[in-house]
Amino acid sequence: MQIVHNLADLHRALKPAALRAFVPTMGNLHQGHLELMQMARQEVDKRTEKGGMTVASIFVNRLQFGPNEDFDTYPRTFENDCALLEANGCDVVFAPSEKDLYPEPQVFKVHPPAELADILEGAFRPGFFVGVSTVVHKLFNIVQPDLAVFGKKDYQQLMVIRRMVQQMALPIEIIGGETRRAEDGLALSSRNGYLSAEERAEAVQLSIALKGLAAAARAGNVAGQLDVAAAEAAAMEALRQRGWAPDYITLRRQHDLSPVSGPSAEPLVVLGAAKLGKTRLIDNLEV
Rank of each mutant, 00 (worst) to 15 (best):
Q144I: 11
A231V: 00
G243H: 06
D100S: 10
Q2K: 15
D81E: 10
G212R: 14
H137E: 11
H11A: 14
R240H: 05
V130Q: 15
L210F: 00
G32M: 07
D256S: 05
K278D: 14
N88H: 15
C90N: 10
V110L: 11
Q157E: 15
Q254H: 09
N80A: 11
A231W: 00
M1F: 10
P75T: 02
A274E: 13
L34N: 06
Q166L: 11
S258N: 01
V136G: 12
V92R: 05
A209R: 06
V269R: 04
P267C: 11
N284L: 09
L29M: 07
R62P: 05
L226G: 01
V160M: 05
V135N: 14
Q64V: 04
N284T: 00
K153Y: 03
N88E: 13
K153C: 11
G127L: 08
N221S: 12
Q254F: 08
P75S: 09
R191K: 12
V260C: 01
G176N: 03
V44R: 12
T179S: 10
G243C: 06
A233T: 02
E43Y: 05
P96V: 02
M53I: 07
A148I: 07
L213M: 09
D45L: 11
A231Y: 00
R41S: 13
D81R: 14
L34F: 08
P263Q: 05
V204N: 09
I249D: 00
F71H: 14
F71D: 11
L206V: 07
M168K: 06
G220V: 02
Q205S: 10
G176R: 00
R191V: 10
G151F: 12
